[in-house]
Amino acid sequence: MSGTIVDCTTSKTSDAVSLYRRTMGRLAGGVAVILSGTREAPVGMTVNSLVSVSLNPLLLLFCARLHSATAAAIARSEVFSVNILTEGQIRASVHFSGKHADFDTADLQARDEHIWMKDNAGTMLCRVERIHRAGDHDIIIGRVDDVIAGSELPAPLIYHEGQYYSLGSACALPERGDSRALRLSVPDGYEGRP
């Protein structure tokens, strides 16, 4: 592979950070919203750093910027939900990424201390298992108490190189040069990353 090489062990410049972010952005991933707080006052963040950790017990993790409002709310309440987004939930992703697109709290459900989004691809209601500091982020590990998934298999929302995509329905491997991913439109005024 040819391209730019930056030695990140000796170069702590913005060029190294920029190249690192661009390179990591090439890893396509699903999009989820992490929620805590109340139905009337939700606190949340958009992530694509969601990882399944263990099946026994059921554990997952995501990363949150140090001192973020969502990480602080989760540390206080020790509960959160993970909401896996569908292609129709771009506005929610944009809103919880801090860009403040329209989001209606009527789209939330609540039970006990958990809140979660309606009509998504799936939800996990979690309790904090452990929080680890790692550089400028916290790694939040959650124990899954409940899983909520409908019988429908909606098309997921995908994020890749700063753009949202949809897979649509599952398909066979495309012929060479045939792209099956569809580029989705984003709300007016949105520029940036979740």
Rank of each mutant, 00 (worst) to 15 (best):
D102Y: 05
H67A: 10
C171W: 06
C8M: 10
P174L: 04
L50I: 08
H132S: 08
V186F: 13
V186H: 06
D7E: 07
A75K: 06
A64H: 04
C171N: 09
I90D: 01
E40T: 03
N48K: 02
H95K: 13
G177L: 12
V79M: 05
S36R: 01
I131N: 01
H95E: 14
G177S: 10
V51F: 14
S18E: 07
D146M: 13
Q109H: 06
N83K: 05
V144E: 03
P194M: 13
Y164V: 11
E113M: 05
G122I: 11
D112H: 15
E87M: 09
N83L: 03
P194V: 11
R127G: 07
G98D: 12
V94L: 10
G88I: 01
S54W: 06
A41S: 03
A16M: 03
A73Q: 09
H114A: 04
I5E: 08
R21S: 00
S81C: 11
I158W: 13
G29C: 02
A134G: 04
Q89E: 09
T86I: 11
I34T: 08
G177P: 08
A28C: 08
L55W: 10
P187W: 10
P57H: 01
M45I: 07
T123N: 10
D145F: 10
A181S: 05
Y190N: 03
R39N: 05
C171E: 05
T123L: 06
E87S: 12
K12F: 14
V53I: 09
A149I: 15
G88C: 07
A155L: 08
H67Y: 13
L66N: 09
S49T: 08
S14K: 09
S2V: 05
